[in-house]
């Protein structure tokens, strides 16, 4: 069964006089273990598509299923819990809570889900180690580099064993070295734990390392290359 199924999805905005068709009939599915990237020119609908898949936004047409659940059937309050359980998010920036330490940020969702302290600590340490930042657990986000902050965000996204991780331009604000090391970590998690990653990006470095490249243009898929 596919992790994500997108069936003929539309999303249009009527904010202005003209209707903007941000997503215009997309059908797509992601399998467990995918390391996929969505590319396309600015305004092609990458962010919109990721938001729809992550349940942050509702499509104006079509259907999205995650691990067999129809998102449209969930009430708004259920959707929040569903997101916490099934989807990990990594954004371009403002990922972390500035007043909390790295470890507290990683533990944040587990905390919201009321995990017992022992279990939370163990998982936090495990995750910090796997993103290579065990020694920085006490640092505040402002004391970490951009790349390190993104790695903490990845660790937090992984905390509750989600179905997949959505990352909207995760390397956009990073220098090459940080971007490479972030990709190394994600690749490793993909390899070793079979974690599914779906990115959007403008970044060729990300494109080169993806196993699948989906190209969007004007809200439509123009190509979907699998290369393994």
């Amino acid at each position: 069964m596919a992790v994500v199924e997108i069936n003929n999805v539309f999303k249009s905005y009527h904010d202005t006089e003209v209707e903007v068709k941000a997503i215009n009939g997309v059908t797509l599915s992601f399998e467990k273990g995918d390391f996929a990237v969505i590319v396309g020119p600015s305004g092609s609908g990458k962010t919109t598509l990721l938001n729809l898949v992550g349940g942050l936004d509702q499509p104006t047409g079509g259907e999205i299923l995650i691990a067999g659940h129809r998102l449209s059937e969930l009430k708004p309050s259920e959707l929040i819990d569903f997101r916490m359980d099934h989807v990990g998010f990594v954004f371009q920036s403002y990922n972390l809570i500035p007043v909390l330490t790295a470890a507290e940020n990683v533990g944040f969702i587990m905390n919201l889900q009321k995990w017992p302290k022992e279990k939370r600590m163990t998982r936090t340490n495990e995750l910090l180690t796997s993103v290579g930042l065990a020694d920085r657990h006490k640092s505040r986000p402002s004391q970490l580099s951009g790349g390190q902050q993104q790695r903490i965000a990845v660790a937090r996204a992984l905390a509750t064993h989600p179905e997949f991780i959505l990352a909207d331009e995760p390397t956009a604000n990073l220098d090459s070295k940080s971007a490479e090391s972030l990709l190394d970590i994600m690749e490793k998690l993909n390899h070793e734990e079979g974690m599914t990653f779906i990115f959007s990006t403008h970044d060729v470095r990300v494109m080169k390392r993806a196993h699948r490249v989906i190209t969007l243009e004007d809200g439509k898929i123009v190509s979907d290359d699998v290369r393994k």
Partner: peptide, 16 residues
Amino acid sequence: TRELGMLMAIGMNRRK
């Protein structure tokens, strides 16, 4: 704003 948006996205509900 962005931080609050992020918190809502990753699972903090409106009540919180």
